[in-house]
Write a protein that binds this DNA or RNA. Structure first.
Lengths: 187, 187
DNA sequence: GTCTATACGGCGATAGAC
DNA sequence: GTCTATCGCCGTATAGAC
């Protein structure tokens, strides 16, 4: 793996766990066995490094949602939607999801506008893929026809946010998923 | 209002909006018309100030949940539960709720243990009040008898987390609430 | 209790040798 | 590209006058 990519990977992990202000350039470099100036050979400053992390994460998220929705072994909409949430909270080194949630919800004030712009753009892409899948499920009768795709999607996104923090706790997901599915399934 | 209380109030607001590392003692004091050392006359250090904020918030949260559950004008369990979420996201200067969520989910690493300990204690108190109310509603038949109180409570808490960040957006709450209630109401 | 002044450390960022 | 050394700034925290 190239040095630049190593820096990105370590930065994503640290930003996700400790936040933007809580992560220093010294911390990142020393965990990689470098010193601080080495990072500045690859990124102009801390904000630029952060934005590169943001772009990486955004692209991964889109790719991941797309591949899950198209995965032929997940046949029903319920298994597809459940699989996405399940992966997000269960994958051990899933700093990507934590990063996404953390900075979407609580960005550092100084970078608030740039972050919102970038994340809104990428969220639009993967949420519209979900919207299409949900639409098809309503038409096919898997999801109750009296609900709109917007209602289902925004509820789903709320759960994805709410459950996302209890990393490793499959317990609560079972509960919320049972009730969510009772709420949207066709009678 | 006493100086100490003014400091607490302003600190809660700033910590909630900008995070722990993103809020400086100078910032807090200057917004109150003081200088930095004035704060140190009331609090030993930044961590002690933060923990005092935490205690204030925790106490308020418990009081608020209790009063809502006992409010005689809210007659059904649906109106009680809905009212709590609604207040949390709609009240304009509700830094309390943002503070609670922010540091429950993403505490600064250096204070992680203390925060978890305090918040787990207070969360236990108000969530057990919710648990009792939900239990009664299952017994009375307002909520479907095939569900357990634990399932309903942990789903509700998930929504409270997930919807809590879209401050001022009643839009999404309407959607998620509709589906949540379909999921738990008695047939 | 609140001020001015200051100590001390860690931060982001850069210069210049290799 | 990576190092050592250093800059300037701002953070927490304290001393001592009023």
């Amino acid at each position: 793996m190239k040095t630049r990519d190593k820096i990105l990977k370590e930065s994503i992990k640290l930003f996700a766990e400790q936040g933007f202000e809580g992560t220093s350039m010294t911390m990142i470099s020393s965990l990689l066995g470098f010193t601080k100036p080495a990072i500045y050979a690859h990124f102009a400053n801390k904000a630029a490094l952060f934005e590169a992390c943001l772009d990486t994460i955004s692209q991964e998220q889109i790719t991941y949602i797309k591949s899950t929705l198209e995965n032929p072994s997940l046949k029903t909409i319920e298994t597809k939607l459940h699989s996405i949430i399940n992966d997000c909270i269960l994958i051990q080194d899933n700093h990507a999801f934590l990063f996404y949630n953390r900075f979407y919800l609580l960005p550092p004030v100084e970078l608030k506008e740039q972050i919102k712009y970038k994340l809104d753009q990428s969220t639009e892409k993967w949420s519209s893929m979900l919207m299409d899948a949900i639409h098809n499920a309503i038409v096919s009768g898997e999801i109750d026809k009296s609900l709109t795709k917007t209602e289902v999607l925004s509820s789903y996104m709320c759960i994805l946010n709410g459950v996302g923090y209890e990393i490793g706790s499959k317990h609560n997901l079972d509960h919320i998923w049972k009730i969510f599915w009772r709420g949207i399934k066709a009678n």
